[in-house]
Design a protein around this nucleic acid. Structure first.
Lengths: 161, 161
DNA sequence: GCTTGATATTTCGCATGCGAAATATATGGT
DNA sequence: ACCATATATTTCGCATGCGAAATATCAAGC
């Protein structure tokens, strides 16, 4: 029994890449979706008409990334942007009929895939894995540096101005 | 105690993205490197003069991706391409002095970061995590579809031709 | 009502990585 | 020597995602 490879950074990167490749190969085969697009469909399934920024936050994306993703999904006919009646800056994103259809298809596929990811591991082990993956969100919080000093620099700017 | 989030696909994607963001913020701060670039430096540290294809295989990248990565690293003065004396198609990639320096710096940083990734988890739990991450490489082998039928189609091509 | 600062989104340039196709060289059989 | 095939690498177009800067609108204080 050899010692396990503990280069977690590398393993994490490779694992994510392998998964992504797989999903996109399936996409090419049937007319599926990428993980990111599926994520949007799922979120809209529960929150149709959400704002770009809401979706970005839910999927842990930067808003500009969500903007591009929405563009591509709109081009693909999966979602639709509609202006917010109250706020002129904001856009509401809605599922189209095609988006609904794809959402259902994606749900089934995602569950299968998730099950595959658990194969060979006990419930408890999967919980450890899930907890570890989630722990990275605490260890690397959003905008770690900037936000930590945001209030301070705001005060200083105030003084200087 | 609420049930843990088991959407492994999502968790994996977010975790990888958070880590990458962190590393690249550090890169912007000191004049560091991305994970991918560090990987190349580490591999060359043990295998200076490796072929583009070898590095790609070691880092689990497609050769064309490695080609671009080598371009950027060459432009940054970290590595150098030299023609293979025996094989006119091949290029050997060598660390420059700057590359050596950065490699040492990256080593220290990577170890710190890896330690941070283990914080809050026991040795055994980390082994589970590492085993799970590595398991994705078996579950999603390279070129899964194509390679599975490569020999067959080769035979058929032979027959048809 | 107007200015000032916050907020929602987009645009731009960039790095990463994929897949398909092109290029160039090697190699094995005849 | 020659041709077909295999191999090493590059090039191209694309999707993803980031960060910085631009744009447009809102909202609060005076």
């Amino acid at each position: 029994m050899t010692a396990p490879d503990r280069r977690l950074i590398f393993l994490l990167n490779v694992a994510q890449r392998r998964l992504q490749r797989w999903v996109e190969q399936q996409m090419a085969a049937e007319n599926g979706l990428t993980s990111a697009q599926s994520g949007v469909l799922f979120y809209l399934g529960r929150n149709d008409g959400a704002l770009i920024g809401d979706i970005a936050a839910a999927l842990d994306l930067v808003p500009s990334a969500m903007s591009g993703l929405a563009d591509r999904m709109e081009r693909a006919g999966l979602v639709e942007r509609r202006p917010d009646s109250a706020d002129g800056r904001a856009w509401r994103v809605h599922l189209t009929a095609a988006g609904q259809t794809m959402r259902k298809r994606a749900l089934a596929r995602t569950q299968t895939l998730n099950a595959k990811l658990m194969e060979g591991f006990s419930e408890k082990e999967i919980d450890v894995v899930a907890r570890w993956l989630a722990s990275l969100q605490d260890k690397f919080p959003k905008e770690s540096f900037k936000d930590a000093f945001k209030d301070i620099s705001k005060d200083q700017e105030g003084k200087n101005q």
